[in-house]
Design a protein around this nucleic acid. Structure first.
Lengths: 353, 353
DNA sequence: GTCGATGCTGTGTACGCACACAAATATACA
DNA sequence: TGTATATTTGTGTGCGTACACAGCATCGAC
């Protein structure tokens, strides 16, 4: 009845080959200390029989502990990177039976030196895998080259860069999400001819690859369909809000005809709150499902939110390591997350999820 | 260094409670034979400590074999349901270490009696879970009610029906995929005023819920945006091709102004091949990524293919059972698969995947 | 006070593998 | 031939859990 098709185990192979289980184990794991002839004999049996190790038993017996590192920006409560961290921890939790450890090193996303410090620190520990969002392209490529030499697999989240060979990527098609941002903005106001494009810097630095790519996508749409529309760049300081108010005031007094705005990083609510006070006729497109952004969406101070799935992406990123290294599965290298369009009408649905 | 945060095991709980591991096990699994006081004591400890069983050890030691059944239409080589079967088998393979067995019962999708036979047969075996595409609504609801009474979880693939409480659904939003079909057809020919809507029957029967819902979606689009467009239903016989040729000839001689066509099930290539011979000016929208359909897409005898991910959906359906029953995870109940739009330009990308 | 019967509890084994260690064999050299 | 050493092979234990079984106490009936 319950005729479980008997699964082949190491012992079976050992018997067939006329050797002991220990020897088969040595062959399977390339541990050496096996004579050429016996090795050949065992390998022949393995060719014939399709042996797949029992993962439960393997995990249970294994003494190896896997240590994965994640290098992400400092995460403030309720912020985007906090959600990433939640996903990371969920993956760690789920893999705890497989002796998987996750460590996180943080950096300041507006300070390349701190990224470099965090990465150096991480590499020193010779981890079994590193998950991180690509920082400024050249700096990142430096590290991906190092990791490839050291044989350390790495996973990109958030955005990706060309020229690297990550084990996998989990995130949006950033360009496309920027492109969509433009499309949505013009859906609201087809005749826009001046758009404020905000971005956060600090001491002149802004290295978010994600933001750059979204910007390209946005521009691409405008270049294709709305050639006459002008984009006004507005650099804000990530940490000093006082002067930002002034910058924005200036912007609008010099450009009273700005009627659309966009910010490619997650703190759209900052812009929205400003606009609400003084310029509520400006239509704003924002990114990412933060609570504060959602509040703005409900108040209609943000017209559309374009969201990704930070928790899910981080979770799957870590799972990619375990699937590849522990469970020997093939990994799909490119994994574009859905580009969710959030409006007042459908936001509840996304929150529940 | 490798300070693995020590995971709590049954033994730890046993010590804390001053009982043996066996007793803790009895409490954990509600196996009875434990005095009220000891049970209370153990439960108290369990409240304090957050114990999660080691899944590897659990799987290894467990004697229980899970038997899942899938009830799907007969699958011809290269057909849609063959792809579903591949996904099912892949899941079985992957779960073989967890004593999971998968059995498949087939039915004729144009014969409700055969569906009923297959379901009855399946239920007789008291499986641990049943995965199937909802057949005609009333018949299906009969069975879902039975399964709910018996405590047998079930998963829908392909399409879903209201009024049932499946553990999960994996498939498209069928209505939406029909809606999209209409949209794409009119993208090609905005001024269409007569569309042939083909469907396969056999001895008058056609119970595919999926097809019905797509039809609704299609009609909804037409009703909303193209009120003047007429839909001509063309019932074909699923098994007797000779007479179909005649039916189609008649159709086109009586309606020479038909310039668009759609078939909501997967064998679009059949229609495409006919149209190619005699009516290549007709634009055809098809469904599903079959090899033969792709060939038509390349020849441009199918304008767009709307595809789902049959293998993936089936795979995830089975995994839902194991995740829920074996790994005690929460399952996301509704899982809409992407509605992929395939054209000559992007088809290669989907095939590679 | 003996005998079961019953309820409760502890012990022991198996699951399949990884890995340490012991044993056996082969090789080198005196 | 004997001893020392390297190479190859087999054996045994533990991983944490599930579950069978044995042991123990309590109780009632005779």
């Amino acid at each position: 009845m319950n005729a479980m098709p008997i699964k082949i185990k190491i012992k079976d192979i050992a018997e067939k080959a006329g050797v002991s289980a220990g020897t088969v184990d040595r062959v399977l794991h390339n541990r050496g200390n096996v004579s050429k002839e016996t090795k050949k004999k065992v390998l022949e049996i393995l060719e014939q029989i399709h042996y797949t190790p029992n993962l439960s038993a393997s995990a249970l017996a294994s003494k190896k502990t896997f240590v994965f590192y994640s290098v992400i920006p400092n995460c403030e409560p309720g912020g985007y990177w906090k959600m990433v961290e939640v996903g990371l921890r969920r993956a760690e939790q789920e893999l705890s039976d497989f002796k998987v450890l996750l460590k996180i090193n943080y950096f300041d996303q507006y300070d390349s030196a701190s990224f470099i410090r965090a990465m150096d620190e991480t590499l020193k520990n010779a981890p079994d895998g590193i998950l991180f969002p690509p920082f400024q392209k050249q700096i990142t490529l430096d590290y991906t080259r190092q990791m490839e030499e050291l044989g350390i697999p790495y996973v990109f989240i958030d955005s990706k860069i060309e020229g690297a060979r990550p084990l996998a990527y989990y995130g949006q098609d950033s360009f496309q999400s920027g492109y969509l941002g433009a499309k949505l903005l013009f859906t609201q106001k087809p005749d826009l001819h001046k758009i404020a494009v905000f971005s956060f810097f600090h001491s002149g630095e802004m290295h978010s690859n994600q933001v750059s790519l979204r910007m390209e996508g946005f521009q691409s749409y405008v270049g294709k369909f709305k050639k006459d529309c002008e984009l006004v760049r507005v650099p804000l300081d990530a940490y000093e809000w006082d002067q930002n108010e002034r910058i924005m005031e200036n912007l609008f007094s010099e450009n009273p005809d700005v009627e659309g705005a966009v910010l490619f990083s997650s703190r759209s609510y900052v812009i929205a709150d400003f606009l609400e006070k003084h310029h509520h006729h400006v239509t704003l497109i924002g990114y990412d499902l933060l609570e504060k952004n959602v509040a703005c969406l409900r108040k209609n101070t943000i017209a559309y939110l374009i969201a990704q799935r930070p928790e899910e992406q981080a979770y799957r990123g870590i799972k990619a390591f375990s699937d590849s290294l522990i469970f020997k599965k093939q990994i799909q290298p490119i994994n574009f997350a859905p580009i969710d369009i959030l409006t007042q009408e459908n936001i509840d649905f996304y929150l529940k999820f």
